[in-house]
Amino acid sequence: MPTSSPAPSPQRLIVKIGSALLVDPSGGVRREWLAGIAADIAARVAQGQQVAVVSSGAIALGARRLGLPKGGRASLEDAQAAAATGQIALSQVWAEVLGAHGLTAAQMLLTLDDLEDRRRYLNAAATLDRLLSLGVVPVINENDSVATAEIRFGDNDRLAARVGQAAGADQVVLLSDVEGLYDADPNTHPAARLIERVETIDATILSFAGAGSGSGMGSGGMRSKLQAAQIATAAGIALVIASGKRDNPLRDPGGTLFLPQRGASPRKAWLAGRLTVRGKVAIDAGALKALRAGSSLLAAGATSVEGRFARGDVVDIVSSDRPVARGLSEYDSDDAARILGTKTDAQAEILGYAPRSALVHRNYLVLL
């Protein structure tokens, strides 16, 4: 793969910081390192950039204060208690280090539902936009004190990518305890090569992902970072995976640059980046060809329905058990199942009302 050229300077930047960078092994804040990050952010703001931070660390900080085992992750209840306790400390330290440079910090706590629900997503986007336009530095974290498995991102890499979408960012930088994406595990393969530039996230790139975080302190890993890169680049946002294990890492992040793809419309980018769907609709080869040509999904090309969903819910469109598109269903799951494989002129008699123009309209559908 070609070597990278420096990523263009973004107007609006999202910086994600992992727990292993912000919290030392004893559970204390790495304040000197954090002060360096604050200085980097202040320098970028002085250059006219707008910066938001997605900061991990609340659970690790809270676990130390509460004396909880396993870094506060022994149970869901421990993690929620640790998050509630640690978030206060996390917000305070960010306010202090940014305030030292004359910057105002703001706190935003989000759950998966806040960015999966379209109305709440737009509300979060409006808040982010206003804060950034005022020169404030939003500090964002998952609301782990209330989130359960069903409504969790589970890692801040994908949260950062979704925040990048909501904020209309140009670039997302994931600072972690790894240098970037390698073609093999550098811990076990000394000759592993750092991939500096990725134009397309294909099967080969995805095969380079290992599971788990290097420190054992956080919840992410290279797999979650590549998922974040898919979300960001599909929305026309560049993403960088870089090491934060040095002072002032934002001065020259280096690492691996994932180039943005041609940006979809805001609604379609939101659809493509969703992490949850209500159901699935399987399609035949003819329907797949039509979708790729830009058509809506018609009931005639659908072969089966899975899950329970209502009209307006998000569904995956699958071919050979692989998601190929995602969109808003025009029917609930029961009615969708009733008209599978039928032509439009036969659907009124089956449904008892005038059929809609499509099962999933192309205006509310995005290819994956």
Rank of each mutant, 00 (worst) to 15 (best):
L351Y: 05
W94L: 08
D144G: 06
L340P: 04
S320D: 13
A161K: 00
V173Q: 07
V281L: 14
I140M: 10
Q230R: 13
E32Y: 09
L297P: 04
G273A: 11
L21D: 03
A125M: 07
A354R: 06
R162L: 10
E306P: 00
S243R: 13
D321R: 10
A100Y: 02
G28K: 13
V93R: 06
K280M: 14
A325Y: 06
D332F: 01
A348P: 02
S215H: 06
R65L: 15
S265G: 06
G216V: 02
G180K: 15
A100L: 07
Y364M: 03
G48C: 08
K343G: 11
R246K: 13
L115Y: 01
M1Q: 05
D129I: 05
A300W: 02
A282G: 06
S55R: 03
I17A: 03
I59H: 04
T200S: 12
P355H: 14
G154K: 00
R322N: 03
I339W: 12
R193F: 00
N363H: 08
G218A: 09
T127Q: 13
E150N: 13
S296F: 10
A302W: 00
G27Y: 08
G216N: 05
A242L: 14
F258L: 13
T276R: 15
A161N: 04
R356E: 01
G216H: 07
A264V: 08
D157R: 11
A300Q: 06
N143W: 00
G168A: 11
G294I: 15
Q230D: 09
G99H: 14
E32C: 10
T3N: 08
V315F: 09
D332G: 09
P190V: 12
L271N: 05
N123G: 01
R197S: 14
N156Y: 09
D113L: 05
S333R: 12
P249C: 11
A354T: 04
T256F: 15
Q107T: 05
G27Q: 06
W94C: 05
G352N: 12
S91N: 12
L367T: 10
G67C: 07
I241L: 15
H361D: 05
L257G: 02
L340V: 09
G307W: 01
I41F: 08
L131D: 14
A42Q: 02
D40C: 11
A81P: 02
A125E: 02
L271I: 12
G86A: 08
G180P: 13
G28N: 14
A209L: 12
